[in-house]
Amino acid sequence: MFEKNERMSIEESEDYGRLTDARNAALENVEVQEEVVVTPVDQIPPPLSEEEIKRRVGEGNYTNVHRNDGLNSVNS
């Protein structure tokens, strides 16, 4: 719309503000209906056993989670 070093006049600035407000107001009133996916009960897998969890995450990770001896580092 404008070059990098150009400046808007007061009228142009007000027009730009009105256009921005109108666009934002139009977007605020948009409702997006989410698609609901229903999984049949017979297709829900059974809960994992403790042994299966250990196998998937590794025994060391499993043990560390269950020890509760301090906070884990966020950046590790």
Rank of each mutant, 00 (worst) to 15 (best):
Asp15Met: 11
Glu34Leu: 07
Asp69Ser: 12
Glu50Tyr: 01
Asn72Gly: 10
Asn24Lys: 15
Glu14Ser: 13
His66Gln: 11
Gly58His: 03
Asp42Val: 00
Gln33Arg: 13
Val41Lys: 07
Tyr62Lys: 00
Arg56Cys: 04
Leu27Trp: 05
Glu51Trp: 04
Leu48Arg: 14
Glu34Tyr: 07
Asp21Ser: 08
Val36Ala: 01
Arg67Ile: 00
Ala25Leu: 12
Arg7Phe: 04
Asn72Arg: 09
Glu59Trp: 02
Pro46Glu: 10
Arg67Asp: 11
Val41Phe: 04
Tyr62Pro: 04
Gly60Phe: 00
Leu19Lys: 15
Pro45Ala: 03
Glu51Met: 03
Val57Asp: 00
Glu50Phe: 03
Phe2Arg: 10
Arg7Leu: 06
Val41Glu: 15
Leu71Ile: 11
Gly58Trp: 02
Asn24Trp: 12
Asn5Trp: 06
Ser76Pro: 09
Pro46Thr: 12
Ala22Met: 08
Gln43Asp: 14
Pro47Trp: 03
Glu34Gln: 12
Glu50Ile: 02
Pro47Ser: 02
Thr20Val: 14
Leu71Arg: 11
Asp15Ile: 12
Ile53Val: 08
Gly60Cys: 02
Tyr62Asp: 04
Asn68Glu: 08
His66Gly: 10
Leu27Tyr: 07
Asn61Met: 03
Met1Ser: 15
Pro45Arg: 06
Asn72Ser: 13
Pro47Ala: 04
Arg23Phe: 13
Val32Trp: 05
Ser9Val: 06
Ile10Ala: 14
Leu19Gln: 15
Arg18Val: 11
Leu27Arg: 07
Val65Cys: 08
Leu48Pro: 13
Pro46Leu: 03
Val57Cys: 00
Asn75His: 10
Arg18Leu: 09
Met1Gly: 13
Gly17Thr: 09
Asn29Arg: 05
Val65Glu: 11
Arg23Leu: 14
Tyr62Ala: 02
Leu48Ala: 14
Arg67Gln: 07
Ser9Phe: 04
Asn72Glu: 13
Asn72Pro: 07
Arg56Asp: 09
Glu6Ser: 11
Asp69Leu: 09
Ile44Glu: 09
Lys4Cys: 11
Asn61Trp: 06
Leu71Asn: 12
Asn5Pro: 00
Arg18Ala: 09
Val65Phe: 10
Arg55Val: 01
Pro46Asp: 08
Ser76Arg: 14
Met8Gln: 11
Ser9Lys: 00
Met1Asn: 10
